[in-house]
């Protein structure tokens, strides 16, 4: 282990000296998901805010019409998962950068992971169980 690796392991407070490629995969995921999200999110914003007339047009019937199509269900599901994982990893990086105490870092990340998991599962459930005849 080089001196730089050793000081990095010490400075991150990690006792685990096993090599892991997690940070490499996380770094790569940000780039790959980012490229896909450019199309999914900018497409979503352009269609919703400009082509379809913005929030003025939005109501339950609009959502029902949209999710009647598997195409938009898959689009929204992919956008939900990629954007949430991309954002969660981004906030993980920011917490690691600025929270200096081990305890603070740990609990902030726990809060992040629990709330992100909740949002991803809730959004997935809503897309898969949407019922246009509810009420």
């Amino acid at each position: 282990m080089s001196l730089a690796d050793r000081s990095l392991a010490l400075s991150t407070g990690s006792r685990n000296r096993q090599r892991s490629n997690f940070e490499l995969y996380a770094w790569l995921f940000m780039r790959v998901s980012g490229v896909v999200l450019v199309f999914l999110v900018l497409g979503h914003l352009f269609i919703m805010n400009i082509l379809d007339g913005g929030v003025q047009r939005i109501n339950f019937a609009f959502v029902a019409g949209r999710w009647a199509s598997p195409f938009w269900q898959v689009w929204d599901l992919a956008m939900l998962w990629l954007a949430m994982l991309h954002g969660t990893n981004g906030l993980r990086t920011i917490i690691n950068d600025y929270a200096e105490r081990n305890q603070t870092r740990f609990w902030l990340k726990m809060l992040l992971y629990v709330s992100s998991a909740f949002i991803i599962l809730l959004g997935t459930l809503v897309i898969f169980t949407f019922d246009p005849t509810i009420g």
Partner: peptide, 14 residues
């Protein structure tokens, strides 16, 4: 995501 999830509550709530 939270506001859109209201479509599972009721059309009125959303």
């Amino acid at each position: 995501v939270l506001d859109t999830a209201l479509v599972r509550v009721s059309p009125e709530a959303y």
